[in-house]
């Protein structure tokens, strides 16, 4: 569903991403590990079309991000590290706004369904998001992604800053989405959560994919050791 072919991004002399090749199939969660500046966010931004790669291709399904941006974006949903919402609108209104941006017109009941599905407490639906915690905003972000019914989901350090309970709830939602055939590419620093939910794990170092393993093939401690050896 998601495919990077020799994906390269250079900023002057600095290579942010060097001939990255990876595939995320339907129903698969691919966790990208790496230090700050390793190229994780650059990879996600290339898939989203936010930045133009220097060479190589990013494919979403059969659609090339470079040549069919509208089609590739239709298949994609995105959850940034910190979901920022319009503070003057309620959670429900934010969800309605972003889903309508993607071309979906949902009824109030449908919107409430998405918010309930991601576990946002009922009394928060109609409250201004000005007072939302980060976890609550992340949940609205997931609801936005769900409402798009996307075939692929891109996450940029989505559990960063979440409390353990919220992070656990978040992981469960991702697993459920993967079971529904969604391809998920997740950039994260959280080795243990990556091991817990991902099928494939890639380790990026200075723009190079230095290692790619099946999550089931090693323990969390072995993964940590591999990570420390490669970065």
């Amino acid at each position: 569903m998601l495919k990077a072919i020799d994906l390269t991004k250079k900023y002057g002399n600095h290579t942010a991403l060097n001939q990255l090749n990876l595939t995320v199939n339907e129903g698969e969660i691919f966790a990208l590990l790496g230090q700050n500046g390793a190229g994780k966010t650059t990879t996600i931004n290339c898939f989203l079309g936010f930045i133009k790669p220097t060479s190589g291709q990013a494919l979403v399904g059969d659609a090339s991000v470079a040549t069919s941006p509208a089609l590739s974006k239709k298949y994609l949903a995105y959850i940034p590290e910190t979901v920022m919402l319009y503070p003057h609108l309620t959670g429900l209104q934010n969800l309605k706004f972003f889903s309508s941006l993607a071309g979906f017109q949902y009824s109030k009941e449908d919107l409430i369904y998405f918010l309930k599905k991601v576990g946002l407490q009922d009394d928060a639906h109609q409250k201004s998001t000005k007072g939302y915690s980060k976890g609550m905003r992340q949940k609205v972000g997931i609801a936005i992604a769900l409402s798009k019914k996307a075939k692929a989901l891109l996450l940029d350090e989505p559990t960063s800053g979440l409390d353990p309970k919220a992070a656990n709830e978040f992981s469960n939602i991702l697993i459920e989405l993967a079971q529904q055939k969604t391809a998920i590419l997740m950039a994260t620093h959280d080795i243990f959560r990556a091991k817990e939910i991902a099928h494939q794990i890639g380790i990026l170092n200075a723009g190079n994919l230095v290692s790619q393993v099946e999550a089931a093939s090693l323990t969390a401690l072995e993964l940590e050791e591999l990570y420390l050896q490669t970065v």
Binding site: K73, Y78, M84
Partner: peptide, 11 residues
């Protein structure tokens, strides 16, 4: 921070 989310939703 809403631009990135909006940009991911629509062209």
């Amino acid at each position: 921070g809403t631009w990135a989310l909006a940009l991911s939703q629509t062209n």
